[in-house]
């Protein structure tokens, strides 16, 4: 009797675990199937066409791709130095009495839902941008800044964790040769934790590019490519969030599915690079 239950239990868990793999494959397949109509209609030009006009049944993804790339790039430029600064502060400068509370609050802030960062952006940050740059304040720049604030806690926390993997004795050895804190950070900690730090930046990039709610409030969903960062723009997730529930034709839906597939493929690639190239999983017992 026991033997039968044993077999059932083993196979049930295996079945479910494999189910997770199949689910991921299923997600790709379904998104692909639903994209077919759009792929057939536009082919490769979907990625290069700048016109997104549902009323004309014309769908070009370039403005959304451009917006995703630029807003993420802005966010990274702003967040990376800040995250490094916060991480150095937390791992090397802060007194232990403030290290823990500040560290824990940063981790907790990383858990605050992104929709709240979006709301903050809309009500408190948009007016500031409007006052400084004119216009309506809803813009690519606003989206980039809000996104950078949203990924900052995650980035700072993982960068700090990576820096903390440097053994104390290694740092002490550099101090024992007369190094300053900055010498130790740049010559010992950063080279030692390089892979982890870069990996966490790329992981944050992967998250930022798929982030929807923090930017949807403040970007404007305007399918236009503009070099002026103070103009409204759109990104792939912003387009999806704004238009999915309203799409009214097969081709429109299919184009949105193609955008979803594109976003999934981009994120999957970026996250895989971070995971496999930089952050080889620490296996317990190894």
């Amino acid at each position: 009797m026991s033997a039968i239950i044993d077999k059932i239990f083993a196979n049930a868990t295996k079945f479910i675990a494999i189910g997770v793999l199949l689910l991921v494959a299923w997600i790709f397949t379904v998104l692909f199937e639903h994209s077919l109509e759009s792929i057939e209609a536009f082919g490769f030009s979907f990625l290069t066409e700048t016109k997104w006009a549902p009323n004309l049944e014309k769908f070009g993804a370039l403005p959304a791709i451009y917006g995703s790339v630029v807003s993420t790039f802005l966010a990274m430029i702003l967040a990376v130095p800040l995250a490094i600064g916060v991480a150095i502060f937390l791992s090397e400068i802060a007194h232990s009495k403030i290290k823990t509370p500040v560290g824990v609050s940063i981790e907790l802030l990383a858990a605050i839902p992104s929709v709240i960062y979006g709301m903050w952006g809309l009500f408190y940050f948009v007016p500031i941008i409007r006052d400084i740059f004119g216009g309506i304040g809803i813009s690519m720049l606003t989206a980039g800044i809000v996104l950078s604030i949203m990924i900052l806690p995650f980035m700072a926390a993982v960068t700090r964790d990576a820096m903390n993997t440097t053994p104390d004795i290694l740092k002490e050895s550099a101090y024992a040769l007369g190094g300053t804190k900055w010498d130790v950070v740049k010559d010992i900690i950063i080279p030692y934790a390089k892979a982890g730090i870069i990996g966490s930046f790329i992981l944050a990039l992967g998250r930022a590019i798929g982030e929807t709610m923090a930017v949807t409030f403040v970007m404007g969903n305007v399918h236009k490519i503009s070099a002026d960062l103070t103009q409204p723009a759109t990104s792939i997730p912003v387009t999806l969030a704004n238009e999915f529930a309203e799409a009214d034709s097969g081709l429109y839906y299919s184009s949105l599915f193609e955008l979803s597939l594109l976003l999934l493929v981009i994120s999957f690639t970026i996250i895989s690079i971070a995971k496999f190239y930089f952050l080889r999983r620490k296996r317990i017992g190894q």
Binding site: P167, I169, L170, E172, S173, A174, Y175, A176, L177, G178, G179, T180, D187, I188, P191, Y192
Partner: peptide, 28 residues
């Protein structure tokens, strides 16, 4: 900083820095 260049230290475990042999010795 000066004190530590006058009084050096060797630790319980070897602490080679993540750099080349030459750069390790040249570090100080």
């Amino acid at each position: 900083i000066k004190l530590r260049t006058q009084i050096g230290m060797i630790f319980q475990k070897p602490t080679a820095f993540p750099m080349s042999i030459f750069d390790n010795v040249a570090y100080g």
